[in-house]
Design a protein around this nucleic acid. Structure first.
Lengths: 160, 160
DNA sequence: GTCTATTTTTTTGAGTGCGAAAGATATATT
DNA sequence: AATATATCTTTCGCACTCAAAAAAATAGAC
């Protein structure tokens, strides 16, 4: 097996690992990864996000965010509020339910991964980081500028 | 930004890069990544795969492969053939159409990436490989044993 | 031989994801 | 004012992914 093949296999494994994690999360909390990420983004950033802003922060298309919000709204974790100033815009707010649920949810999406990663020596963390960034670059992904969606709010409850 | 966050961002970028690649591929060939992978797997491995075998080779669930085959069958690139010996089994064969299409298609899914990767020094390739494998492991993905297929979701609507 | 367990594929249901087009509203131009 | 253009969200269409349930067939136990 060529070594590039092995790289692709490993990437594929990572993708599936994330997917499986999201499914497990859904089993235990009723939320999937992207849903949780959106809730967390709402939590950490005040109240008045529009959907577009939200989608940019989370680095998903607006269409995708809309459908995820639909589900969150059905679960009563979130409400939409049409802006009165500019009626094209829609703001999204956490409900009390949503806030409560967040307080019980894992702070991080890839908790296990993060724990393992942080237990590494610094030099090793840096090595892994630069490797994966290198690969991202080679995939022509550098222009994408993805937000840290797979994971989590940093522990600092800092708003933007 | 914590360094684990940056790692997750990079992974996210990779995933999107792959996704975009698949969309471009679909535009140019009418096939998505997973579809192409399955065709290639059929091509390289003789004729008498069952669907289960195929799903294992490509490391997708059987359910997923079934739906992809549905689409390939509609496009007349592939045929299903119920086994006469064991009627539970279904073999999948390339049609002439499928073979022809394959001969025009890119041999590899991430051609650009592969080219770039292979232009690196050996030691660097190894470094990247072991890094990404390390991460896969930390994601608990090691048990998954993914095949080198690699394309996330993808799709590009045909014009109408 | 018949009944049950197992295997194999398909179906169902739920979720992610995107682009394009449609709907509404707002701003700029004429 | 009337028209055009820009912006924002939703809807539509479709692909991918999986687990679980259903369907079909075989294998094994009795």
């Amino acid at each position: 097996m060529q070594s590039y093949e092995e790289v692709l296999v490993a990437i594929r494994q990572i993708i599936r690992g994330i997917d499986l994690h999201s499914r497990r999360l859904n089993k235990s909390t009723g939320l999937t990864g992207p849903q949780l990420v959106i809730l967390q983004e709402l939590e950490k950033g005040g109240e008045h996000f529009t959907i577009r802003e939200l989608s940019q922060m989370v680095n998903l298309s607006q269409a995708t965010v809309t459908t995820i919000l639909d589900r969150l709204e059905v679960k009563d974790l979130v409400v939409r509020q049409r802006s009165t100033i500019d009626k094209r815009k829609v703001h999204v707010l956490l409900t009390d339910n949503g806030k409560e649920l967040l307080s019980d949810s894992p702070k991080a999406l890839q908790e296990e991964f993060i724990a393992k990663f942080q237990s590494l020596d610094n030099w090793e963390q840096n090595l892994l980081l630069s490797s994966v960034q290198r690969i991202a670059q080679m995939m022509n992904a550098e222009k994408l500028d993805a937000a840290p969606y797979l994971e989590v709010s940093s522990f600092t409850p800092e708003k933007k």
